[in-house]
Write a protein that binds this DNA or RNA. Structure first.
Lengths: 204, 204
DNA sequence: ACTCCGGCATGACAGATGTCATGGCCGGCA
DNA sequence: TGCCGGCCATGACATCTGTCATGCCGGAGT
């Protein structure tokens, strides 16, 4: 036994993706058998290639790595999923775990942890940054309702209330109410801060 | 002749940095002889190790890769500088060129372009993405004055006029005037949009 | 000497934003 | 059945934000 570990690698930045593949290629017992640059290409890639572990970046076009993880979890219950991200946001960790990820790594962790995490998840372990886990627990769950998140996300680019109302088919007053409640829940004083905090927490 | 090309690699995310080093290590004639994770550690690293080419990420703690490039250019006129970035912002390209960079690469370009760029700059060529160059020319120079940039940057986190005034030792009216002129120069309708556009262009 | 531009400021005004009270509708839950 | 929470809306109010006119100062360029 102990044949080569076959990996799927999903990451939108070519240079980073291929560099990670080169890094993993240095491991004697690992091989990246398929690479994709979009989240929505992950399921098809998993169907086309028998892989043991999927390494998924979060920020990708098409679908996030977390969404892709949820799909893989349903369709391939035995496939291990490692979520990899630039931003150590507590809310991301929480979402990734809820989507069924086996490991959660931030890109500023030492490179050695990547191969290590692959081996651990195959051994049935879960790998998460303890600091981030603590932060996720401390923050609690996302306090925003679907609508509040939707409005806040739409407001993030600097749209005015009138534009938001038109885009979301709501009245201006309703838009303002949602933003007002979001602002209060996040304990800030205006929409710009609300957007910033929600982003930092990974709640947006 | 044609001895090994010695490289300095500056990038704050360990995993990405070491992966890039692995990628470059696959090239027969190249070797990453020193890695740093902060912009302000670049000059010392260049002094301590005789390198032929410096690969600098832009977004780093301590100092940006562009600032580091300017320092290297002054102190080591023969050292070639390749600026590497996640964000293909026209303003970044302009600043990098003004700082004396020899090449400007975005991380979503194919990985092969990295080694290729290293060889080209050593041959005396300049390497820049033509699309990005066109965008930089089309955008023109940063239209914001120092003060406008400063106020806009400070306003980016959602601070109110009163807070900005206090932080920058200005009157509230002056803060509003600067923001107003910035908003007009960027042809947008509020500070949030101004921040977004300035960021996108690399003017912030 | 004159003009332009950037930095700094004030006051006045219109419009955008945030809060609050209030109420209707619906679905889930005790 | 009754209560609660999320969703949607209105109107009134206070405050914040963006614009404009205007003015002063100092440096750079003609």
């Amino acid at each position: 036994m102990s044949r080569t570990i076959k990996l799927l690698l999903a990451e939108d930045q070519s240079m980073v993706r291929e560099a990670l593949a080169a890094l993993l290629g240095l491991e004697e017992d690992m091989e990246v058998v398929v690479q994709v640059a979009r989240g929505d290409e992950v399921p098809a890639a998993a169907r086309a290639h028998a892989v043991d572990v999927a390494l998924l970046d979060i920020e990708m076009p098409g679908a996030t790595g977390i969404e892709a993880a949820a799909v893989l979890r349903r369709e391939f219950p035995d496939l291990k999923v490692v979520v990899l991200t630039t931003f150590g946001r507590p809310g991301y960790l929480r979402s990734a775990m809820e989507a069924g990820a086996d490991a959660f790594l931030v890109k500023d962790a030492p490179a050695a942890q990547l191969a290590e995490a692959v081996r651990k998840v195959l051994a049935g372990e879960r790998v998460i940054d303890p600091t981030l886990a603590a932060a996720a627990l401390a923050d609690g769950a996302n306090p925003l309702t679907d609508r509040e998140r939707e409005v806040l996300r739409a407001a993030a680019d600097g749209s005015t209330n009138a534009e938001l109302a038109a885009a979301l088919h709501l009245s201006q007053g309703t838009v303002r109410n949602y933003l007002s409640t979001a602002i209060q829940k996040l304990a800030v004083r205006n929409r710009a801060e609300a957007v910033r905090i929600a982003r930092e927490k990974g709640w947006l």
